Structure formats: structure tokens, C-alpha cells
Amino acid sequence: MISFSCRLARERFVLDANFSIPGGCVALFGASGSGKTTIAKLIAGLERPDRGHIAIDGRVLVDTAAAIDVPVHKRRVGLVFQDGQLLPHLSVRQNLAYGRYFAPKDEPSVPPEAVIDLLGVGHLLDARPATLSGGERQRVAIGRALFAAPRVLVMDEPLASLDAERKLEILPFIERLRDELALPIVYVSHAVEEVARLATVVVRLSDGRVIAEGPPAEVFASALPGGGSDQLEAVSFLTGKYLRGIAEFGMTILSHPAGEITLPGRYGSGNAAVRIAVQASDVTLAIEKPHGLSVRTVLKGHVRTIAAGDGPSALATVELLGGDRISAYLTRLAIADLGLSEGREVYALVKSVSIDPRAVALLGSRPAQPGR
């Protein structure tokens, strides 16, 4: 359990945020300047609130009313930053060992060999940071944080400085931390795809305040059609089961009660469950089952709600056969021309190439790396 209630006033910014959430991976999500990093620093002890209370699993780190402020080195918070911040004159082995200086002698921690295996850095132990790729440096930085036996891991936009390929390399390792170590993670990001894949709970921030809190499917589905950046943040979650792979084209087909979902890349095997996140701006609706299109994913359902703003856009939510819901941005003109209304049978179309591989996750098993 992570309990946070703090106020911090600066000259041009005021943080006044409250949330209390269970373990797992908690994503702090919002635009730049919304307060994500400030909350991470307050948890780690790098900032002090004007007033507030912070507790991790019942252990109080900050309580201004009771004059409690646990020092940084005693908070048991593992920190991972954008650039890794490895010590350049030390080898990977020595960088990892550096984290052990901060581990309590009398408390159990993850065995070093398990951390090295978990992050796949065994072959890098004698290398220096300058010879590592960006993804390798971040894996070592995560390992150093784990060697300190933290009670919570705070990751401040750990993938922001990496290219798309390196991001895909790191995401499965963070999933393993979440699933295999059961270590609470506070994950700071403004990337919808990363949060959709990793988070068990999302705390959405704007101007220093919490504006939404809950499971990713609920938080990201709550965006309303008002144009601007929000139009890219309405996200739906679909779960299908591995049906077959098409090796010659590098594709995976998932079965879903509403139809088949076609994914670029290779995901799963057997009867594995796969969850994908789909942005509403990548969904098209049809009132008849289409033919002769390049779109491969066609899912049957009925319109559940239509929410229209003041502008030309609207957000339609479709309940698919099987219970999943998918949202689509479309124009109010299209709604009128198609005669869309609540209860109308429709087909939701999703282009395979629009599905971001960062937002695809295997459920109930070790995550697979796309294309491997």
C-alpha cells in the first residue's frame, strides 16, 4: 500500500495531491509540469513537503504533523533515472555491488544472482558503462537499485532517453520486476503505451492535482472529445488468446469473441492470453461488415455511448461481443451520416500497423520480446 497526501508550494507551481493505492506498478501519468517527478522526489526524500504524510506498506516516511522525516538513505527507496547515472570508472559488476552498500544487513533481499539473471546482464559484468547500449545501461541501473534491497522502486521516466528499439528491450524486464519480485513500483511517464502495458493502477495528474485514479482501462477511457492532446489519450484494452502465428509475414492472430485480432510481431504460443491497448484515434466504425479492405482486425459489437463535445469530434464507446469495450474518435458529421445511436450494431476496425508493440503484453506468463 502506498499512501500519499502532500502539499508543496513553489513560486509558479503548487502540488496538492492525495492518493492511496495498493502495490503493483503505480503509474504517475500526466503532461510535463503536472507534478509527476515532484511526487517521485517527495517519496524518495529528495524534496520535502510543506505539509503532508507519506507511508509505504504502513511504514511512515513523512508526517509533518508528527515531525517525522526519514532520511533518504533510510527510506529503502530504489531510484532509477532517465540516464541511469552509472559510475563511469567502475565495471558493471562494481556498479551493481555499489548498491549493496545501502542494503540493510539484517533484512532479506533478492539474491544478487537472481537480480543478474532477472535483468539478463550476466554477460556484461566486466564491461564499463561507456561500452553499453542505452538499454543495457538502464538494466544495470535497475539492478543497482535492486541490490540496495528497496521496499519500493521509483522509476522516473526510465525510457525517455531511449529509442523505440531499446524501449522494447527494457519493457519485458520491468514486467518481470512487477510480476516475479512483487516489488511495488512507482513509474513516472507521459507515454500512454508504456503506462498501458505496465501499470496496475494509474494516478493521472494535471497542474499538481490528481484528476483520475484507478485501473488503466478506466482512467484512459475517461478522456472526452475536446481536441488537443486529450484526443490521443483515450485508450481501450482488449484481451485475446493466441490462435496462430504467420511466420512468413511476421504476424500473430488472436482469437476474440468479437472477431480475430491481427498483430504485427510474434506474441505468445499455445493458449496464451495477450492484452493490447488501442488508441481511440486508431479505431474506425462501420455499420456493415466491410469487405475488400486492407484492415485485418474487424470486431463486432454495439454502440454503448456517444459523448460529443462542443467541437466537431465525438467519442463513441462500443461494447464488443465478449464484454470488452473499445472507443473510437469520429466526427459528429459521421455520426449523423451513419445514423449511429446507442444500441446500433457496428463493426470496429483497427489497422494492425497502428498497434504500438510497447502496448502489447502477455498475461500470466513471462513476457515475450516482439520478433524473438
Rank of each mutant, 00 (worst) to 15 (best):
S109D: 12
V110T: 14
P111R: 02
P111M: 06
P112G: 07
E113G: 12
E113C: 09
A114Y: 03
A114N: 10
A114I: 09
I116S: 05
D117G: 02
D117Q: 14
L119R: 07
G120I: 08
G120Q: 10
V121Y: 13
G122R: 13
G122C: 12
G122W: 01
H123C: 04
L125G: 02
D126W: 03
D126K: 14
A127N: 08
R128Q: 13
A130R: 15
A130M: 14
A130Q: 15
A130G: 15
A130L: 14
A130H: 14
T131S: 15
G134W: 00
G135S: 05
G135I: 10
G135T: 12
E136H: 04
E136G: 01
R137S: 09
R137A: 07
R137C: 11
Q138K: 08
Q138W: 07
R139K: 15
V140S: 02
V140T: 04
V140F: 07
A141V: 00
G143C: 09
G143Q: 06
R144E: 06
A145F: 01
A145E: 04
F147L: 03
F147H: 10
A149K: 04
A149W: 05
P150D: 00
R151T: 08
V152R: 06
V152L: 11
V152A: 12
V152G: 05
L153I: 01
V154Q: 05
D156Q: 10
D156I: 03
E157Y: 08
E157L: 05
E157G: 12
E157N: 12
P158C: 09
P158M: 03
L159F: 10
A160F: 06
A160Q: 11
L162I: 03
L162F: 02
D163S: 14
D163P: 13
A164T: 12
A164E: 15
A164C: 04
E165N: 11
R166K: 15
K167L: 04
K167I: 06
L168S: 07
L168A: 10
L168V: 07
L168G: 13
E169C: 00
E169N: 02
L171T: 10
L171E: 00
L171A: 08
L171M: 09
P172R: 00
P172W: 00
I174G: 00
E175H: 15
R176Y: 03
R176A: 05
L177S: 01
L177G: 04
R178V: 01
R178H: 05
E180R: 15
L181Q: 05
A182Y: 07
L183Q: 04
P184D: 04
P184N: 13
I185P: 01
I185H: 00
I185R: 01
I185T: 01
V186M: 07
V186E: 00
V186K: 05
V188G: 08
S189A: 13
S189E: 06
H190N: 13
V192F: 06
V192L: 13
E193K: 10
E194N: 10
E194T: 11
V195F: 09
A196C: 13
R197H: 14
